[in-house]
Each structure stands twice: as structure tokens, then as C-alpha cells.
């Protein structure tokens, strides 16, 4: 291969590097930078959202525990009410001489 052709081929190769590869590399770096920064921003936003949801979850758990306690109390109250109702029906049963309604 003669020198002129060798130099010309080298020049073409160098031109491809300078005009294509290097700008591509810079674009790729910029794109990666944009992706990284966007993802980091989104992670920050989601982390804040998760913190809000955790607070809400804690409140809901407290509410759930309160509801369960109230549920137990209502069940106890219902039991007492049924017992009193039975006591009320007993004299009626005796007096009327017939069985109270089953419902």
C-alpha cells in the first residue's frame, strides 16, 4: 500500500472517529446523565410518596385496632342485651303460658 493511500485511509478512519464516534459517545454520556438524574428524581418523589403512604398505613392500623376493640365491645353489649331480653321473656312465658317467639 502506498503512503498516500495509507494516509488517506487513516484520514477517513480518523474522520469517522471524530465525526461519528466521539459525538455519539458524548450523546450517550448525556443520555445516561439524563436517565440517571431523572431516575434519581423519580426515586426521591416515590420515596416521599411511600413515606406518606406509610403514615397513612399507620393511621389506618390504629383505626383498625380501635374498630376491633369497638367490635368486641358491641359483641359484649349484644350478649348482655340478649340476656336481658331472655329475662324479660321468661315472665311473659309464664304469664301467657305459651312459648316466646323463636325469632
Amino acid at each position: 500500500m502506498d503512503t498516500r493511500r495509507q494516509v488517506e485511509e487513516w484520514l477517513q478512519h480518523s474522520r469517522r472517529i471524530v465525526e461519528d464516534v466521539l459525538p455519539g459517545l458524548l450523546d450517550e454520556r448525556d443520555e445516561l446523565m439524563r436517565r440517571a438524574l431523572n431516575a434519581e428524581d423519580e426515586v426521591t418523589r416515590l420515596t416521599e410518596r411511600a413515606a406518606t403512604l406509610r403514615d397513612e398505613l399507620a393511621r389506618s392500623k390504629s383505626e383498625h385496632e380501635a374498630l376491633l376493640r369497638r367490635h368486641t365491645e358491641i359483641a359484649e353489649s349484644m350478649g348482655h342485651a340478649m340476656a336481658q331480653l331472655t329475662q324479660v321473656f321468661e315472665p311473659m312465658k309464664r304469664m301467657l303460658g305459651e312459648a316466646p317467639p323463636s325469632s
Partner: peptide, 19 residues
């Protein structure tokens, strides 16, 4: 930047799953 983007996207995926 590539490593940082990969790390951030992994954290993002984890954060989305947690959320």
C-alpha cells in the same frame, strides 16, 4: 453515569415495588 443510571433505575424499580 452508566453505573449511576443503572443504580438509580434499580432503586426506582424497588421503590415502585414497595409503593
Amino acid at each position: 453515569w452508566s453505573a449511576r443510571a443503572a443504580e438509580a433505575e434499580s432503586q426506582l424499580s424497588q421503590a415502585r415495588g414497595d409503593l
